[in-house]
Design a protein around this nucleic acid. Structure first.
Lengths: 140, 140
DNA sequence: CGGCATCCGTTGCGATACTG
DNA sequence: CAGTATCGCAACGGATGCCG
């Protein structure tokens, strides 16, 4: 009866049961949670996903959307997203060259849950900041 | 008018519109997306949230659930989660002392979206790994 | 049992300068 | 316009050892 499909994962047999199957080799790529979430956690990944959610964007446009990103990180982050199959990169051999980035189907499908998390973040940002302040002052 | 509740956020006025309001000071805590997602991205945060989702756990129990976490990171990550108001820490002055960690209401509320993302990760982990392999071999 | 301190390697990320 | 290359610092994260 368990709706156990909701809590099975990773090294965990049934995570809430407190049982671990193994800490086998690999141990990182083998774990979906880590392999995927670790990337999303990057400083810029989520913002870029959001920026691309509405449609393709050129490199320069993205750069303008993320005012305080360095061009190094924009390039690198887009690379990572492309590598993981979230983003498609298309080069137009114009003169000067232009490159367009867009979400793949995979990217769009992960954008759903990501957006929900982002919306949660917006709604509860205040609560988190408050909790943080409370904690910090309590510590002195 | 706008269905703007879906894409308004952060420094962005309307993110997909390509318009940025400002890159004002603060620039990090001010941005819900970064302030919240950045933490979730930590190597262990998501796993610990999952571990606590079913109910309170003691320090040692959590440690056993996460086989390859160092005790340093477990302590530190729990601290961060507590600071942000996701986790409640209760000390029982037994002998020897025991400490119990549990999700707060805020923690449970963020667990929802987080779990969806985790489920997505499980389901699409294969696709991501495949895309990654494809990309890497293409690069040679 | 639970947790802090220290040391130390690794990675993330920014600044700057150069290329097709 | 859209990158790549190099540098350097700071944060992350693991190992070990001491303490209530």
């Amino acid at each position: 009866m368990k709706t156990d499909d909701s809590v099975n994962r990773c090294d965990f047999e049934r995570i809430a049961g407190g049982k671990i199957v193994s800490a086998q080799g690999g141990g990182f790529d083998d774990c979906p949670v880590r392999a995927v979430i670790a990337n999303i956690g990057g400083k810029w990944i989520s913002l870029i996903m959001l920026a691309l959610a509405d449609g393709p964007q050129r490199f320069g446009a993205l750069r303008r959307m993320l005012p305080d990103i360095s061009q190094r990180m924009l390039t690198q982050t887009l690379r990572d997203l492309q590598r993981d199959g979230y983003v498609h990169r298309e080069v137009f051999p114009t003169k000067p060259p232009s490159v367009e980035y867009s979400l793949t189907d995979l990217g769009r499908s992960m954008y759903g849950p990501l957006r929900d998390l982002v919306l949660w973040a917006e709604r509860n940002h205040g609560a988190v900041v408050a909790a943080r302040a409370r904690f910090d002052t309590a510590e002195g």
